[in-house]
Simulated scan of single mutants.
Amino acid sequence: MGIPAGSLNQRVSILHNVEAGQDSFGAQQTDWQVLTTIWANVLFKNGSQMMNANREQSDLVASVRVRLNKNIKSDMRLQYRNDVYDIHSIFPSQDRSYMDIVIKTINPETEA
């Protein structure tokens, strides 16, 4: 079945966490680096407001459709334009020609 090339009209980068040496105390440092840049179709679904520790926090969720890429994992991040998102889940299509990646705004408490 496949996915029409014309529908993949936006560029996204997949980021992975790599070791970046040690700090002055000897603790391991990590950094997010671009693994690959690919064509995608980005669809923002909702922007719900959530209450978290007596403060309002925006929780933005989007779906990103890309050609199937087995190197993309849910512990990675996705950069779209100038914003970086956590990859929440990955759903391959039934025919394995593409996959939908669900992304969410990065939670500051889990920021590495």
Rank of each mutant, 00 (worst) to 15 (best):
V34D: 09
N9Y: 02
Y98T: 06
D83Y: 12
S63P: 03
L68T: 12
R67A: 10
E56W: 11
V102K: 02
D75P: 01
A62E: 00
N17E: 15
H88L: 09
L60T: 04
R77Q: 06
K45P: 00
W39M: 13
N71M: 05
R55V: 13
M50A: 15
Q29S: 01
F25N: 14
M1H: 12
T30V: 05
W32A: 02
A5P: 10
A112C: 00
T37F: 04
E19K: 13
E111S: 13
D75S: 08
S74T: 06
V42R: 03
D31E: 11
V84D: 02
E56N: 13
V18N: 06
K73Q: 13
A27F: 12
R55P: 08
Q57T: 15
R96C: 08
V64M: 01
S89R: 07
Q10F: 04
M99P: 03
T105L: 06
Q33K: 15
A53I: 09
S97N: 13
G6T: 11
D86W: 05
L68W: 07
H88S: 11
N82P: 00
R55Y: 14
D86G: 04
N82G: 10
S13E: 07
I106M: 11
S93V: 05
D83F: 12
N41Y: 06
D95T: 10
R67V: 13
V34T: 15
S89H: 05
S7Q: 14
T30C: 01
T37E: 06
D75F: 10
S24Q: 13
L35S: 11
S63Y: 02
S97T: 15
I90F: 03
S48V: 08
R11F: 10
V102Q: 05
T37Q: 06
S58P: 10
E109D: 14
R81K: 14
K45G: 03
T110D: 12
N71R: 05
S93F: 01
K104M: 07
R67Y: 14
V102T: 09
I3E: 00
I101R: 03
A40C: 10
L8V: 03
D23W: 09
V42Y: 07
M1P: 09
A5S: 14
K104Y: 06
K45I: 07
M1F: 10
F25H: 11
S13F: 02
M51S: 08
I106A: 06
D86P: 03
T30M: 01
V18P: 06
S7P: 01
D83S: 13
S63G: 05
Q33I: 11
S97M: 14
I90E: 02
Q29I: 01
Q29L: 06
I101P: 00
I103Y: 02
M76Q: 08
V12W: 01
Y98V: 04
S7D: 07
D86Q: 09
L78C: 03
N17C: 14
G21K: 10
E109T: 11
D95Q: 07
P4D: 14
N46E: 06
F25Q: 13
V12G: 01
S13P: 04
D75R: 07
Y98S: 08
I3Q: 01
S48Y: 07
D86K: 06
I103K: 00
K73G: 01
H88P: 00
V12P: 00
S89P: 02
L43N: 15
